[in-house]
């Protein structure tokens, strides 16, 4: 418990050192006022009513400060409350206790200003729309004029310029996820929320997608929270990794990743990468076995 408190207390300073570590472009970004938003979670808990008076503590007392432009990965066994925490940050679910602010405002405000992008394991593309129209859909749903150049730009960014007119059923799983990520980014969000976006992909495609996401993200550092059950993915992408313990879901460990950016496929062969990976895998196993012993 003492460890946890320490971790949480030192988050702010972590974030500051991180900005220094992360290199020039991000420093410039954080200096400007309209940069990516910081997120503050204070004593956030979520209790679900299961009926007949039974309740389930899905998330319990989470404290976390995320710096603007930071990439956070959230790992933990399935069912430990990662998606619930993410849905609360995205304003899709209200916390039972505690508060969440994005750039000082509520997630609902963030949504209203179209400053949030989400992509989930289920891509949720509209099957009747082409890749292009799917990426343009956020404009239409938000009642904004479609910025065709922006849509073209994003399809190119995710490497699907040649598939603009293809329907989702004509795309592979990885391509669909890329469309989904392009769709999440099209309104230039300040916060990007990813819930196991590559969870259904095979290992090779997944690594390539990670590399691609890393590239996209470093071109335009956006405050990003990624839920994943792959420790490898977390270490490769994140600035900080939060490990959640199961039932009730708390932050058991917050680990900083000291790998230089830009990272590429060869980053995974660096000794630091392997060390962090081994450490976190052990911690994850530890937390999960503790949970099951309860």
């Amino acid at each position: 418990m003492g460890d946890l408190e320490n971790c949480v207390m030192s988050n702010t300073s972590h974030a500051q050192t991180l900005q220094a570590v992360a290199g020039k472009p991000r420093e410039a970004e954080s200096a400007s006022i309209t940069g990516p938003s910081e997120i503050a979670l204070t004593n956030v808990s979520k209790t679900f009513a299961l009926g007949k008076g039974q309740t389930l503590d899905a998330v319990s007392n989470v404290n976390l400060n995320i710096a603007g432009g930071e990439f956070i990965a959230l790992i933990g066994a399935s069912g430990c409350g990662k998606s619930t925490l993410l849905r609360m940050i995205a304003g899709l679910e209200d916390p039972s206790q505690g508060s969440i602010t994005i750039a000082g405002q509520s997630p609902e405000d963030c949504i209203k200003r179209q400053k949030l992008g989400i992509a989930m394991q289920e891509h949720g593309l509209m099957p009747w729309l082409s890749a292009w129209d799917n990426v343009a859909l956020p404009f239409r749903l938000a009642g904004l004029p479609v910025d065709t150049e922006r849509v073209d730009e994003l399809l190119a960014l995710v490497g699907l310029a040649d598939f603009a007119q293809a329907l989702p059923k004509q795309l592979s799983g990885g391509m669909k996820q890329r469309v989904s990520i392009a769709r999440a980014l099209v309104l230039k969000p300040d916060v990007l929320i990813l819930d196991e976006p590559f969870g259904a992909l095979d290992a090779v495609t997944r690594r390539l997608m990670n590399n691609e996401l890393q590239r996209i993200w470093s071109q335009q550092p956006t405050t990003t929270i990624l839920v994943t059950h792959s420790v490898e993915e977390a270490v490769f992408l994140a600035d900080r990794i939060c490990l959640m313990s199961p039932r009730p879901g708390r932050l058991a460990l917050i680990e900083e990743v000291e790998l230089n950016r830009p990272r590429g496929l060869d980053t995974m062969h660096e000794p630091e990468f392997r060390q962090t990976l081994a450490k976190l895998t052990a911690a994850l196993d530890d937390v999960c076995t503790q949970g099951s012993r309860q």
Binding site: L92, I111, Q114, G117, L141, R183
Partner: peptide
């Protein structure tokens, strides 16, 4: 969820 996330 996606629709709500873009303010619709």
């Amino acid at each position: 969820d996606f629709c709500r996330s873009v303010g619709c």
